[in-house]
């Protein structure tokens, strides 16, 4: 058992930063919130669409970045990836196969994939891993804009994230 007695409710426009040491269960909590893991006890409920960025980018290593993003964009019902790639600063990498991208570039690509989804609820697991200062600033700006327009963002990270009006949940307080 990683944590117990956790009660959490969020409204539109809210941001939450889940903190805790390595191995305390941040990723497990994020995957429970995403519906990918079942909690031992308890339940989650949400209205609105979910999008997640974690350490797995879900982009085919052999595909060019543009084609890999277009696949997910088409699954989300559109073809336009230019805006999201511009926002993440990877517009000039569209012809480069994913396997040649650096860790930070892959992270940016994963965020571009998530932006294409136009989801209301963002679940970000260690969103800043591998990103440079410019990338961090971009992510913080995107989260602020997302929450400003009524979206929800839950970010789990042991690093500090500059989020406006974010609540903080220290998972260490709920250790089982």
């Amino acid at each position: 058992m990683l944590f117990r007695g956790l009660n959490l409710e969020m409204q539109g426009g809210g941001a939450l930063h889940i903190t805790g040491t390595n191995g305390i269960g941040k990723t497990s909590l994020m995957r429970i919130l995403a519906g990918l893991l079942n909690p031992f006890e308890g339940s989650t409920a949400h209205t609105g669409t979910l999008a997640m960025v974690d350490e797995k980018a879900a982009l085919d290593p052999q595909l060019a970045l543009g084609n890999a993003l277009k696949f997910w964009a088409s699954m989300d019902g559109h073809e336009d990836i230019a805006a999201s790639c511009g926002a993440m600063g990877i517009a000039d990498l569209l012809d480069v196969p994913i396997r040649f991208l650096s860790t930070g570039q892959r992270k940016r690509a994963a965020f571009a994939r998530m932006l294409n989804q136009n989801a209301q609820i963002w679940l970000l697991d260690e969103p800043l891993n591998g990103l440079d200062d410019d990338g961090v600033a971009k992510i913080e700006g995107l989260i602020a804009a997302h929450c400003g327009s009524g979206g929800i963002c839950i970010a789990a990270s042991h690093q500090s994230i500059n989020l406006p009006d974010a609540k903080t949940l220290a998972l260490g307080d709920y250790t089982a």
């Binding site: 980018a57 879900a58 982009l59 989804q117």
Partner: peptide, 11 residues
């Protein structure tokens, strides 16, 4: 490994 099934489940 790539997390493709996770992303499909989210959709």
């Amino acid at each position: 490994e790539l997390g493709v099934f996770d992303q499909l489940a989210l959709r």
